[in-house]
């Protein structure tokens, strides 16, 4: 059963007090849940959050399903999001994604067997000037080539 840490609970309370309506606090609270729930938001955690925030589950689910930045399925420890929008694709983002999937033996959007990595294609991350680029967990990695991207990820996997 998922539960937020004490700090997390305090965070939610603070966010609730911050806005005019409780509904406005859903996005920051979902981010917090995602952070504390290994990178994804499970149905149980939505129920938990609904109790904590005293909001209907459906309202939280509406927000959760609308935004792609919330993961509805479990992800690996490293969540590699490769931008697949126009600028990045023109500079080889699709090939980059295929290369990474092949190298780390994982299908797009799926979690690797050892649970360490998920590679997903996402829409524009707003960094077109440094295309192609990817986001690993919270950080941007820019001006990539298949080789440099592989090196970055390998370094992080070994560092873990």
């Amino acid at each position: 059963m998922f539960k937020l840490s004490d700090e997390g609970i305090n965070f939610v309370k603070k966010e609730l007090a911050r806005y005019e309506t409780k509904r406005s606090a859903i996005i920051p609270c979902l981010y917090r849940v995602q952070k504390e729930n290994d990178g994804w938001v499970s149905p149980e955690s939505v129920s938990y959050l609904s109790e904590l925030m005293e909001l209907p589950e459906a309202w939280i689910n509406e927000v959760l399903n609308f935004y792609t930045m919330f993961n509805k399925k479990p992800v690996g420890k490293l969540h590699v999001q490769v931008c697949n929008n126009i600028s990045c694709c023109m500079l080889g983002a699709r090939e980059l994604t295929d290369h990474l999937c092949k190298t780390f033996n994982v299908k797009p959007e799926e979690i690797s067997e050892d649970g360490k990595i998920t590679i997903s294609k996402v829409e524009c991350l707003g960094s077109c000037d440094t295309a192609p680029m990817m986001q690993i967990n919270d950080d941007y990695h820019e001006n990539l080539t298949p080789g440099s991207a592989e090196k970055i990820i390998k370094g992080m996997l070994n560092g873990n």
Partner: peptide, 21 residues
């Protein structure tokens, strides 16, 4: 009772209850 909501977006939007409750 607030059971219903509209989930997903664009042409995949659909009405429903949380986890088909």
């Amino acid at each position: 009772t607030n059971e219903l909501g509209i989930f997903n977006r664009g042409d995949r939007s659909e009405v429903g209850t949380f986890e088909d409750k």
